[in-house]
Design a binder for these strands. Structure first.
Lengths: 206, 206, 206, 206
DNA sequence: GATGAATGAGAATTCATTCAT
DNA sequence: CATGAATGAATTCTCATTCAT
């Protein structure tokens, strides 16, 4: 290996290193928070030297931003919503919420970062809220289809969309905190959708 | 009392100082997070010398815990739930949610701390979750009354309780982040309760 | 003025307080060293308030000096040497060494201070060495009597005096460090004197 | 050598720096004591920045321990004792004591640390006492040879060994404190040995 | 006399960042 | 590219001393 045998190899290597650092940073930022994380911890986790990190990222802040940009799951969110089949509205909503729940779960570390740093770091909160907005917007258009098809009645779709979104997010957060023993999404979500759809008021005389 | 003119005065002064420090700490911790907050920032905000802080609290961690203990709103939460009158279920639930929203709003700083530090500091998350639990438990017993009175149908009360709670909390958080221009609680909450009660499914054939 | 009913009482009280502080200081200085000891620790040990200490002593340094002056055992040392009866030289020396050992033991805390601070604090080392000098001088004059009486042969008395002194001091220090299980002074000292004497005792018949 | 010109150079430089810091620490600890010494004083003496010290040692305590481990003279002590020739017992003992004295003198700073911190820092006292023990043990075995060869009479060898050791150590300490003008080891030690021997040397013809 | 609240000057330690090798 | 030694500013915490009450 006389150093630059294959110019491609180096670029690929470099990109691999960058990814290793980003992954390590994601993990450490999630565990310790931005302020709590140290550069040496990150580089150690990444298995590189401390100095090398500064070859790829100008500073800690930029690393943080790269982590968020790189791991943002906006695209996945869009895909989930686009791929809904032609089942009953009940089933579609349940599927959607469950998939959103799974998405959060698969992005544990990123969610943890959003939570911790969302209030202080504008770069973070921006991404976080654009996700929520995306979710809500898509849910609204889905509900709108239901209305147009006559399966849902006319009502404040934004309220319903936000309520569903909130319930899923909070379900995830509490489970994260309480541990897996807590109400499972497979149990909770269908129940919630059912309640939402038919209401909880009793109908004696109707 | 031969020795000091007003022996009480000093103790009262001291307690006042302690409170000033706690208030300053609440503010700074909320703004900067635990790690981001510095002792000198806190003491400066409190208008005291840096060293005095250590006269009242053994260290930063203990200060944090004192802040949370001192400002915990568990009691207020209980009171809100206890004081519900004999109006319609719709009105009772709306009132409750709105008051819970107002409570969150009045404890802005503490909520901010819960959010940031909840994942890392067990002392924080413990208080935070005991609040949520309290809220949910009380909501369930309220819903249970409704069921027993026949105004609500039999269903998974815990799911409804958690959904309402989640919606209120997330409403608060998004408004906090987006600014006051966003959907107001006076608009959102009654709508949400209405949806919840009667459902969103259309009833052509019924 | 109902406060100064008996002018004597207050003076006595004050002197008592001073002693309490000195005793506490002796203890804490011995345990923690001069630098390691804190004023609040001392006042707490003395059972007084922190501020009161400054009524009796201008500062920490002065307190240290007072401790040493107050507890110096130069006088006791002189007394020990003066009170030697008319027994055999062997017995006299043994008694002397043992009593010196006991003296060290009874002044544990002071010795600990001498050891720790002797090298840095001139006020301390001065007292410490004046004790050693006193001990050596007195031993020499005792030995000199022996020589004059013909029970000891002519030799370098200073060397013998220093050797005995050293052995006793080191015996104390090692026992202090190793714990009581180590060679006891009752065993060691007579043996040492015996060894020493069969050398320095004159042998008329040889 | 593709990457760095002389990969060894840096490591050597680093080791050199480590030593510089250890040497500075030895000096400052000896002068000021553990508590009295400050990190900035040490780094200044070493000619490095304050932070670098923490690159090499995790904290002040660890630095102290490293100083002691690095400068311990247990090995030298063993060598001294091993290398005794076949001269008269008088000469052998004199040589030994003198060399031990010289050893103490050459390790002035370390001895100062032992003295100051021996009572409080267990890590220190452990090393200190293992030296003393080593010295005494070796002296005993040397005396034992003398007994077996018939040049010394049967007696409590441990007492003699400890007495000699004590005399040398105290001689060093007092000279250290009083200054060089005090009784020199070249004068004192042979005299002491002579005194000692005329007691413990066997007298065949008696 | 007595108290302990208040101060502020350091002390140890951490860590992002730079740079020689 | 890669390393990790080096820096120094910032941070938490300590403590002798003062002083109003």
């Amino acid at each position: 290996m006389p150093e630059t045998a294959k110019p491609e190899t180096r670029k690929i290597q470099a990109e691999k290193r960058r990814q290793e650092i980003l992954d390590a940073a994601l993990k450490v930022f999630a565990e310790q928070g931005y302020q709590g994380a140290t550069i040496s911890q990150i580089s150690e986790t990444a298995g590189t030297s401390l100095g090398l990190l500064y070859h790829y990222f100008p500073n800690k802040e930029a690393l943080m931003e790269a982590v968020i940009a790189e791991h943002s799951f906006l695209l996945q969110l869009k895909n989930i919503i686009a791929k809904q089949g032609k089942q009953s509205i009940e089933s579609v909503l349940s599927q959607l919420c469950l998939q959103f729940y799974r998405l959060l779960e698969s992005k544990k570390e990123l969610v943890a970062i959003f939570l911790r740093e969302g209030t202080s770091n504008p770069a973070v909160s921006q991404v976080w809220f654009s996700m929520i907005r995306q979710g809500v917007t898509s849910l609204i258009s889905l509900l709108d289809q239901g209305v147009k098809q006559g399966v849902l009645k006319e009502h404040r779709l934004d309220v319903t969309a936000r309520t569903l979104m909130s319930a899923v997010v909070m379900l995830y957060l509490t489970r994260e905190a309480y541990g897996e023993g807590f109400t499972s999404p497979e149990d909770f979500i269908p129940q919630m959708i059912a309640s939402q759809l038919s209401g909880i008021k009793s109908r004696q005389k109707e």
